[in-house]
Amino acid sequence: MKIAIASGKGGTGKTTLSTNLATFLGETKRVVLADLDVEEPNSKLFIDAQILKTHDTFKMIPRWVSQACTQCAQCVEVCNYNALIHIANEILVFPNLCHSCYACSELCPTQALPMEPQKMGELTHWRSDWIDGVEGRLNIGEEQAVSLISQTKKYVEKYFGDDTVKIYDAPPGTSCPMVEAIKDVAFVILITEPTPFGLHDLKLAVETVRAVGKAFGVVINQHGIGNDAVLDYCRAEAIDIIAKIPHDRAVAMAYARGELAYRSVAGFKEALRDVVAFCEAKGLL
């Protein structure tokens, strides 16, 4: 089963919940944690892990072959992303604007734009005492995360079977990277904090998850720090509250040390048990 942990607002505890939950489950089950927050992948920082392998990941970009080109510039007209320009008898390609749709390449009458791989990031497979992890990491200067998220998921699906629980640490926000991360999971756990920012961004995330058509529930992190508006909203919308992680400075301090909080903070472990019980009741584990 695949479970995504997502949030609208950043910094609400996605990585804290996914690293702790994955490791806690890993004590009794086979678990893989996929870090799909490829712009800022952080989960490995909190887990004592050995890297099994790292390989480069690529996106496909057209390369202009001047000898084959007849200067018809149909490619420029075809490209909806302005990733190609025709200037002084040359076709210039702007890789950061390219979405790898292949239209320019495959519609070129003289095959003058073959698609070729260009490095966009790295994929790392690591292992701790308890779980496996797969991390996608976007290169600095690369701007499009979606393709790397998709490749990271493909790796996870190829190497881990149905006997393995798959936890996806999704990127923040509600735009296409988040949608890519959750689109084929069985369930989405939205984590939020009980503050006005948390509530506002939770509503956006709920709107997105509903548009994608996923079952979901909410975990409230730092319960007690703000107000009850998130609880009221979830009740009014009939959204399951899976667990409340109590506000406790000890959790923040464990995080700051790069440690898993459930090992030292009893209230946090209790909340994890609630998450596991919920997932079991839903048939997700």
Binding site: G10, E39, E40, E143, Q144, P172, A256
Partner: peptide
């Protein structure tokens, strides 16, 4: 947030950048 297109667009033309961080890994 992040390092992708939106942050690059946010930065263009800026005179000064304030980086807000916290002492965690």
């Amino acid at each position: 947030p992040g390092i992708g297109c939106p942050v690059v667009s946010s930065l263009s033309g800026a005179h000064f950048v304030v980086l807000v961080t916290e002492p965690t890994p």
